[in-house]
């Protein structure tokens, strides 16, 4: 039973990691590529680590919550590095598929869309 849970978690983790990397290769501008690793890879490694925690906790040597620390660390650092990368890319004026945001932010209150679709 536990082996089944661990196996499913491991497979899910590996598949998510692969999808994240796939996004990194397939998507067409830097800003969209940024989404793959920050989410899919983080959850992928997260579920691998949960699998490992479950596996070692049920091996008789007591609770193993070590892995939670790595998971926590990844979940805290992934958005920070994503934010910094996005900031660096904006700073370098990388080409974006989305309409570029103007350098001075528009007035805070407006959020309506201009294109009528």
């Amino acid at each position: 039973m536990i082996e089944l849970v661990v196996s499913v978690l491991i497979l899910a983790g590996a598949v998510f990691t692969l999808i994240g990397a796939l996004g990194l290769v397939r998507l067409r501008d830097f800003y969209t590529r940024l989404h793959g690793p920050t989410k899919a890879t983080t959850l992928g490694v997260g579920s691998l680590l949960v699998a490992s925690a479950v596996w070692f906790s049920t091996r008789g040597a007591g609770l193993s919550l070590h892995e939670v620390l790595v998971t926590l660390f990844l979940f805290i650092t992934a958005p920070v590095s994503a934010h910094l990368l996005a900031k660096a890319a904006l700073h370098q004026r990388l080409h974006s598929l989305a309409p570029e945001p103007e350098s001075q932010p528009e007035s805070a209150a407006q959020s309506e869309e201009t294109d009528a679709g």
């Binding site: 990691t17 890879t41 892995e67 990368l85 660096a88």
Partner: peptide, 30 residues
């Protein structure tokens, strides 16, 4: 671009973490 390469390097580190965790499960060692 350079941010692309940094992003790839970052992802590579996360992949390395995944591989090490898998290796730990396989070797049955914490």
């Amino acid at each position: 671009s350079r941010p692309d390469r940094i992003l790839a390097l970052d992802t590579l580190a996360v992949n390395a973490v995944a591989l090490i965790v898998l290796f730990g499960i396989r070797q049955n060692s914490a």
